[in-house]
Write a protein that binds this DNA or RNA. Structure first.
Length: 129
DNA sequence: GCAATGACGCTCT
DNA sequence: CAGAGCGCCATTG
């Protein structure tokens, strides 16, 4: 019964993915953890696998974590991978020749705000230099 | 209910 | 630095 009937867990995953801002990327593991599934990177991948265009998910922003500081497209189908790369570059994400994505530059740092009270951010108001 | 699967991730060679 | 191996977790057959 996977026809239009997506598991509640998957829906949580989709919800996290929708929060990824344009020009940034998140890893499968990161998405899974934010969805409440520590170590469930493959589950996040499965959720995307069964997703449909109608869901309007920014699927291209979810990538595989290759090293602590670098990520890369993990789609098997070379065509789909090329499409993803194009979409990412289109929104400002730079990929090296080898397809490496710098997490330091484009990795999404989720600003906690899911129901819990967010910590006050007494950031000094410094505008011009 | 058990066995297989995968758009993963980390470690060891 | 590239490749092989093993562990993870929920969905599917």
């Amino acid at each position: 019964m996977a026809d239009g009937q997506v598991t509640a867990l998957y829906r949580r995953i989709y919800r996290v993915i929708r929060r990824i801002p344009r020009g940034k990327v998140a890893t499968y593991g990161q998405v899974a953890e934010l969805a409440g599934i520590p170590g469930g990177a493959r589950v996040a991948a499965a959720a995307l696998r069964v997703s449909t265009p109608a869901m309007g998910l920014p699927w291209q922003r979810v990538v595989g974590k290759r090293s602590p500081r670098s990520a890369r497209i993990s789609i098997l189908d070379p065509v789909g991978a090329a499409i993803q790369r194009g979409l990412l570059e289109q929104e400002g994400v730079r990929l090296s020749e080898a397809g490496a994505i710098s997490l330091a530059d484009f990795g999404w740092l989720p600003t906690q705000r899911s129901g819990k009270k967010r910590a006050a951010r007494p950031k000094a108001r410094r505008s011009r230099h």
